[in-house]
Amino acid sequence: MADRREYEVFEVFVRKKKTDAHVHVGSLNAPSPDIALTTARENFLRRENAVNLWVVPRGEIHETPCDEGDWFARELDRKYREVSGYSENGRLWKTYRERALYLEEIVQDLHPPSQGNRPRPRRERT
């Protein structure tokens, strides 16, 4: 591509909030990375807010094969690493007149929705 006379393809990634990861939203053609960034804003964020944008030359992306389902195969039981694998806790706690403790409850206690600790609505772009 050293003799490229045409634009290059850039993949576009958007971070919507500081606490979010970048998410792929599509691709565009641009003559250079800086122009790719400024055109990406209007081609992908005309109605949405964001705090950060990445553009990556298509050739710099390494991906898993798309039609090889086995790449992601996870067939046998892995409940031992999931919450659902421990449903008996509830029953066991009952014998001690207590109940199982879940993460959601802790989060809930630390961030009660009534106290306005919910994420505030984002400011409208004016």
Binding site: E6, Y7, V9, G26, S27, L28, N29, N43, R46
Partner: peptide, 29 residues
């Protein structure tokens, strides 16, 4: 804004077409 969206849709669709046309040696131009 509406005409701009139409162009934006053209952009999205042409990108999809370009990737399909790449093995046939065709790009946006």
């Amino acid at each position: 804004a509406k005409v701009q969206d139409e162009m934006g849709h053209g952009q999205l669709l042409l990108r999809v077409a370009e990737d399909l046309a790449a093995p046939l040696g065709k790009g946006r131009e």
